[in-house]
Write a protein that binds this DNA or RNA. Structure first.
Length: 845
RNA sequence: GCCGGUGUGGCGGAACAGGCAGACGCCCGGGACUUAAAAUCCCGUGAUGGCAACAUCGUACCGGUUCGAUCCCGGUCACCGGCACCA
């Protein structure tokens, strides 16, 4: 028989579904394991080869855990609200739901064809009213606790999506989603008070098993700094508070500088001698985008506030006051003290405006640049701080400032509150009503879900209103509180809303009375292992931790943190067909001949295709024609081959290029497994000399599967197969081999197991045990070195003692030759590993 | 600039409680089978020298610790990712 992957894979996918082997049990007495992958946005493009990398990795973990007797929850769903479907709907005049449902159907077929062991009974979609009822419910709980509030403020406005964005959605001044420029716009928006959780979101990372770069990135993004607020007496009679993390440099202050948006300026209007100039600067600053203010304008500008002076509370010195757009209103107090000797920005500003530069930490040359003092720098010109190190001076000044009454300790965060409204149609309606008398009033919980109304046009508007604003029948309602006429909120929630809690719904997806039952949440949470993309670190991952912590405080969920372990897969890239390195040898030769040299050939490619041609490995893109469609791979090689290759192509956490040739190696492996099985069926192969190799493989494959090292697990099984082919094997050994291969290549292993007379599915077979004593070979090969260089290898019983090993080494012919005329000074013997003789030439008597 | 990560054959990558560097696979070369090709199977494959046994050199670079370093320590360089006028 031939290995026909198509029929075999279909057969077993149907069999698993029929038997329901992947359904999580509602038996809360069993040990549980909750494995989670990020649910996809069901785009029209269908599955990308990147998706299965994550899904297969945790599928292997989930399948193995099931075989080990765990009650495993490995669910899948759809993050189904979102702009692409809405934009498609606008263009083609179909309802976004219709196109989204089609895409979901297609995605599900694709996922099923990969043999992923998702529990489809627990499938969820964020667009189901039965689901978004609870998204709305959570929002209302936040509203009731003051965590959702409406504020008018400058927001990020995407000029193409015609919609506001959260700070996390703006990347290098452009929209994270569509790449269009983002501008500032003053708008009234619903906000979520994530900053109230900033401290906990940093601190609680510590006890979690998250990969380092995720922790670092979140910590960075939250950006906690602990410093001091210092009050300066002003000539205007009031005080100005500045924030600093470097109180130790207070003696080095030569000016103060405020943000041009600082509200106190208005109050000082009459006292400022050059108000017209100040006002002109304010207006110029307001016109600049954030991007211009930060990226393009490192050159310092500003205006002196004529007639205003400030008094340094440390030494009584009077210093001038400026406004400059290098100071941000949104951080700290919107005012900073200028210490040009030790801060490069202040140095640039002071140099431009001819302000004094006072050195307060010894070292560097402050006439040339600011000296960024290290912790062990010594304070000078700083009164009572003189002679201290910077490290000592920081707390000393804090203590002094607090005692003297001009300072107080302050912690600041870079994290901003979450802008939560979107002016689009295809999102969850915000369940609030505005009443002239009562203000914002929640839609009563028994009226949830508040459904999206049908509209004629999904087009976003230029004036910044949601498409729902045109839907007058829906908007006009009565106040649930007083019964007066009232209007509904027309903005919708961002896509991140539904994905902030979806993993809770999987625990109990059909519950109509709660987002999930208490028992289910208590049993399944926290998620034991969550894998997802790095691009979600400061978006989805941070947002969902915040929602979860809120629900913890509200008594809904049982733990402080939602995810015990977080890993991240590297992206799958493609080969660049325009790179010299990826040309065939013939093409390379031809091009070199044409251009004269390899360097010239490379230059010609860059000339033709741009700088891109210097990168042999690039993101897959339609324009390069290097996009790989998973369906094609499944059809040609089969899902098992696809799974193996996705896992074998490199270190899971690193980016890796898809090599269309290398996948053949995985297919060959499975064909050899198939052929060996055929031999066994015919009774042509037998032997049992493989015991130790089998036990080693069970151990190694098991450990690797638990540690996201499927690549080496597969290499181990390839090595084992090489041995089984060479030695021959018996049926029991082979079936053990099939069992450990099953989580990786589930279809072919089920089929062969059945052909060999296996009565139950491997998916329901126990993961084999290994015997530690049998993983040890009776004989060990030991390298023998002389002065650190390997001169020979001896084979000796593994349990030989040091003396026996030494004697055996000394008896070896090659070693005797190497030791001739040498005197052994020292010998190192490490059992089962190595012998090293340290020698020097023998002294001649 | 700050934070995190990574540098190993022609390629993807193994090996890190310090102990034979290059597992496994791809590519490539040779052979078997075939009328032939594909597929399959066997052999070889870090570099240099040698018919060979073998020798020397090799884990980005410089230095240190050690009997012994891809691994630990100090410094340098390059690349990737994140943040960035956050005081």
């Amino acid at each position: 028989m031939k290995y026909e992957h198509c029929s075999i894979e279909k057969k077993w996918q149907d069999a698993w579904e029929k038997a329901g082997v992947f359904h999580a049990k509602n038996d809360y007495t069993k040990p549980k394991f909750y494995a989670l992958v990020e649910f996809p946005y069901p785009s029209g493009a269908g599955l990308h080869v990147g998706h299965p990398r994550s899904y297969t990795a945790l599928d292997i973990v989930a399948r193995k855990k099931r075989m080990q007797g765990y009650n495993v929850l490995y669910p899948m769903g759809w993050d189904a609200f979102g702009l692409p479907a809405e934009n498609y709907a606008i263009k083609n005049h179909v309802h976004p739901e219709q196109i989204t449902r089609q895409n979901i159907h297609h995605f599900k077929e694709q996922l099923t064809s990969l043999g992923l062991s998702f529990d489809w009974e627990r499938e969820v979609a964020t667009i189901d009213p039965g689901y978004y009822k609870w998204t709305q419910w959570i929002f209302l709980q936040m509203f009731k606790r003051g965590l959702a509030y409406k504020a008018s403020m400058p927001v990020n406005w995407c000029t193409s999506c015609k919609c506001v964005l959260a700070n996390e959605e703006v990347v290098n001044g452009v929209c994270e989603r569509c790449g269009a420029p983002v501008v500032r716009k003053e708008k009234s928006q619903w906000m979520l008070g994530i900053t109230q959780y900033a401290g906990r979101l940093v601190d609680d990372l510590e006890e979690l098993d998250f990969i380092e770069r995720v922790k670092a990135q979140q910590t960075n993004w939250i950006g906690r700094s602990q410093g001091l607020e210092v009050d300066f007496q002003m000539s205007t009679g009031d005080t100005m508070t500045v924030y600093t993390t470097r109180g130790d440099t207070l003696y080095g202050v030569s000016y103060l500088v405020l943000s041009p948006e600082h509200p106190i300026l208005k109050e000082w209007k009459d006292k400022i001698g050059n108000w017209a100039e100040v006002e002109a600067y304010q207006q110029a600053a307001a016109r600049k985008s954030d991007f211009e203010r930060s990226e393009l304008n490192k050159d310092k500008t500003g205006v002196l506030l004529a007639g205003i002076r400030a008094v340094n509370p440390a030494n009584g010195a009077s210093v001038p006051v400026f406004i400059s757009d290098y100071v941000l209103m949104g951080y700290g107090t919107g005012a900073v003290m200028g210490v040009p000797g030790h801060d490069q920005r202040d140095w640039d500003f002071a140099t431009k405006f001819g302000l004094p530069i006072i050195q307060v930490v010894r070292g560097g040359d402050v006439t040339k640049e600011a000296y960024a003092a290290k912790e062990d720098g010594i304070m000078v010109n700083s009164g009572f701080l003189d002679g201290m190190t910077v490290k000592e001076a920081i707390p000393a000044m804090k203590e002094y400032a607090v005692k003297a009454g001009f300072g107080k300790l302050k912690t600041n965060f870079k994290l901003r509150d979450w802008v939560f409204s979107r002016q689009r149609y295809w999102g969850e309606p915000i369940p609030l009503v505005y009443c002239e008398k009562c203000g914002w009033v929640p839609v009563p919980e028994d009226q949830l879900p508040l459904r999206l109304p049908e509209v004629k046009s999904y087009e976003p508007t230029d004036n910044g209103e949601s498409p729902l604003a045109k839907c007058t029948d829906w908007i006009n309602t009565v106040c649930p509180h007083c019964g007066c006429p009232a209007r509904r909120e027309t903005d919708t929630m961002p896509q991140w809303a539904g994905s902030s809690w979806y993993f809770l719904r999987y625990c109990d997806p059909k519950n109509e009375r709660a987002l999930a039952s208490k028992e289910a949440l208590d049993y399944w949470l926290p998620v034991d292992w969550y894998n997802g993309g790095m691009e979600h670190t400061t978006l989805h991952l941070l947002y969902s931790r915040f929602w979860y912590k809120f629900l913890y405080d509200a008594g809904v969920v049982p733990t402080k943190e939602p995810y015990q372990k977080r890993t991240s897969h590297g992206m799958i890239l493609g080969l660049n067909p325009h790179s010299f390195d990826n040309l065939s040898p013939e093409e390379q030769e031809k091009l070199v001949k044409e251009q004269g040299s390899e360097a010239a050939a490379r230059a010609a490619l860059v000339e033709k295709y741009g700088e891109m041609a210097t990168h042999p490995i690039v993101k897959m893109s339609k324009s390069l024609g290097n996009v790989v469609n998973p369906d094609d791979i499944v059809e040609e090689y089969g899902a098992d081959t696809m799974r193996l290759y996705e896992m074998f192509l490199g270190d899971f956490e690193k980016t890796a290029p898809w090599d269309p040739k290398a996948i053949k190696g995985c297919r060959r492996f499975l064909e050899r497994v198939w052929n060996l099985s055929e031999k066994l069926v015919k009774g042509e192969s037998y032997s049992s000399a493989n015991e130790s190799a089998i036990h080693k493989a069970i151990k190694k494959v098991g450990e690797d599967a638990d540690n996201l090292k499927a690549n080496t697990a597969i290499a181990t099984m390839m090595g084992l197969l090489n041995q089984l082919e060479k030695n021959g094997c018996n049926q029991a050994e082979f079936q053990t081999f099939l069992t450990i291969l099953n989580p990786f290549a589930p279809h072919i292993t089920e089929e062969l197991n059945q052909q060999l007379g296996g009565r139950s599915m491997l998916a329901e077979t126990a993961w084999p045990q290994f015997d530690e004593s049998k993983t040890v070979d009776a004989l060990a090969e030991i390298a023998v070195q002389v002065n650190g260089k390997v001169r020979s290898v001896i084979t000796i019983a593994s349990d030989a003692d040091e003396e026996a090993i030494r004697s055996a080494a000394l008896a070896d012919g090659k070693i005797q030759a190497a030791l001739k005329g040498m005197q052994i000074i020292k010998s190192i013997v490490i059992k089962k590993k190595i012998v090293n003789f340290v020698v020097k030439p023998q002294e001649i008597a």
